[in-house]
């Protein structure tokens, strides 16, 4: 759990933390690879929502160098299979996500990230 697709959607949302609050840095990650169903239509629909640079750097940080620096113009099956693996099959089971701006630590335990804010961090 905490797949990279989820990591790509989560930003620090503490009060006043509005710049440089994404992507969250992955710390002390315990990884697991779990097979997922390949659905090219889902991936094609989701590509416009991806922050590509953030996905590439998160994948590389976790040791997966397979993604190109830019989304290719020709989206073929090979590319989609690689993207599928990175987005949906790499899981962070334990560890933390840390805001690069304010340093808030969002711990991940049994695959579930705790994104709750403390009292002084909400508006």
């Amino acid at each position: 759990m905490v797949r990279l697709i989820t990591h790509n959607l989560l930003a620090c949302h503490a009060k006043g933390c509005t710049t440089n609050n994404f992507p969250l840095q992955i710390k002390d990650a315990q990884l697991a690879l779990r097979e997922a169903e390949f659905n090219p239509d889902f991936l094609r629909g989701f590509i416009p929502r991806i922050e590509w640079a953030a996905l590439v750097s998160a994948a590389r940080q976790l040791g997966d160098e397979s993604l190109p620096n830019e989304v290719p113009e020709m989206i073929d099956d090979d590319f989609l299979r690689g993207l599928h693996h990175v987005l949906l099959e790499i899981h962070i089971d334990e560890g933390a996500m840390v805001c690069p701006n304010c340093g808030h630590v969002y711990p991940i335990s049994s695959g579930i990230p705790n994104m709750l804010l403390a009292e002084h961090e909400i508006g």
Binding site: T6, N8, L10, A11, L88, N114
Partner: peptide, 14 residues
């Protein structure tokens, strides 16, 4: 896909 702990009125979705 995933499960997250957060308050939907203070959500971290980008």
């Amino acid at each position: 896909l995933d499960l997250c702990t957060f308050d939907v009125t203070h959500n971290p979705l980008r």
